[in-house]
Nucleic acid binder design. Sequence first.
DNA 1: AATACTCGGATAGACTTA
DNA 2: TAAGTCTATCCGAGTATT
Length: 602
Amino acid sequence: MVHWVSDSEDSDKFEWDSDEEDAVSFNAAGSGSSALASTNIDAPGPSTRVANGNGKAGPSASAVQEYVDMGFPEEMVLKAMKDNGDNGADSLIELLLTYKAIGNDPSLENGSASHCDPQAAKDSDDDDNLENWDDDDAGGRNRGPTFDESDDEDFLHEMSQIDGKVDYLVKMGFPEDEVNMAVTRCGQDASISVLVDSIYASQTAGGCCGNSSDHEDNSYGGRKKGRPMEGNKRKRKRFGGQAQGSRGPLDGSDDESMRLPKPMVGFNLPNGLRSANRSLPGPAIGPPYFYYENVALAPKGVWTKISRFLFDIEPEFVDSKFFCAAARKRGYIHNLPLVTRSPLLPLPPKTIFEAFPRTKKWWPSWDPRRQFNCLQTCVASAKLTERIRLALTNSEDPPPVRVQKYVLEECRKWNLVWVGLNKVAPLEPDEMEFLLGFPKDHTRGISRTERYRSLGNSFQVDTVAYHLSVLKDMFPHGMNVLSLFSGIGGAEVALHRLGIRMNYVISVEKSEVNRTILKSWWDQTQTGKLIEISDVQTLTSEKIEAYIRRIGGFDLVIGGSPCNNLAGSNRHHRDGLEGEHSALFFHYFRILGDVKAIMARL
DNA sequence: AATACTCGGATAGACTTA
DNA sequence: TAAGTCTATCCGAGTATT
């Protein structure tokens, strides 16, 4: 049952104090590390720059002038060009508009050119002390070597160069001395990922491994066995500190793989009898709440590793087939309470026939499917459905087993539905919207291919909303949300459908069509303020702090990792959590750490 | 050993724009 | 008409399950 609490109640402060199971004050947890949080992570590490300077020239005078002519102050243009990197003109303009919208520009005195919408002006009670949240160009305009070259470098390499990586790990709850030892062992150049490996290796092995060369050979997966199992007393407790051995299949010793639960129902389900409880480790407890999603069937070791980074929280693996008519196996790592969950109403149909009754008429008795497989980003070609039609019309009824098998195989592979005699077809985009819990026509207006791609990458709204439903009563006055890799706004739609007001949403999404979709939905349904950012790299810790100061903090950091090369097909150049695609996860990690540290400090 | 499943990508051709 | 953009098609491999 959903609680529809009116927005008019009058308790002004955020209630972060502990649901019954997590009775640790976040302030206490966060203050220890906060002193370190303010070190300058922009400063290059000592002699560790990679020799990758791609001779990129700074912004040309004429290009700057072009945007100055459009009415943007020069300082703002220079800053935007720096932050934008190589992302092109559209992205640059968005950035400029974002700066303006949030009132970032120090030189924006007369309101004549202001894009500030009235809502934002009204909500902010501190207009006169707007942060110069990019005051680096106010001070020393040419900060020398950090200005240009590093923008394009892979994030991991960048992180390898900066002193701040130690701080990030400390911020996220790793013991400081162990982090420092890991740096000593692996060298200054080691990536964060390697450092975490090293910390765990020494915790379990007693620190006898010499300075390994792990970081050079990308060999995370190669260290499979031979780890002594003696627990170290200071080891970060696995999965929130429950007694090891009582975890069932998830306590898969210390090897790299994490077994998926069967059935994949998460910690609990609506109306389910399973009532789960868990205790979170202190550093994991908010603020903010966070919610991270990724494909469940990631390559070996990936989930173990992600979990290590995120406080060793046990992932909640859920198949959305328990929420709707399509399977979707995903893992979620979050620090939300579990006990007061409630599903979205009305409950969506859970079988194909309930969802699409008209298909029943044409559904052959030898097709046993009652639910869809995972909705993907690509759909079957017309040629395939025509081949199927021909194969069936050339057979008697029922067709021979060979034909049945072929047709069924293709139907399962491509999620085909029966729409006529011997006629199958892929799901329409609006049917996928429906299955995923989005409003009809949510993605309408872009090309068909792009709709499929965006939807295939999206959240299943009912599943996510079920997990987020606990927030409803905690935030009767609404929430501030940092939404990373937002896609078409699955998280936002879920919160909205839960009746949770969103005061501010800062959304990071690379794809322009996705940003357009989210913005358009937002303008139709929301009264809060949406700020869209195209490039996650521009969300520096300075900016995060400025946003936090401005809007009063984030209540939820939510994001799904774009899973390029992590799941499904084309895994041949996947790279787990070592290569360039993993940079996206580390952005999530970095930003969450920043938000936690800054909020604890302020 | 065979089978099922998977938040993808390079490419040629169709289409649109300058 | 050439160049750029979008679309449809084939093509895949790794992991888990049977």
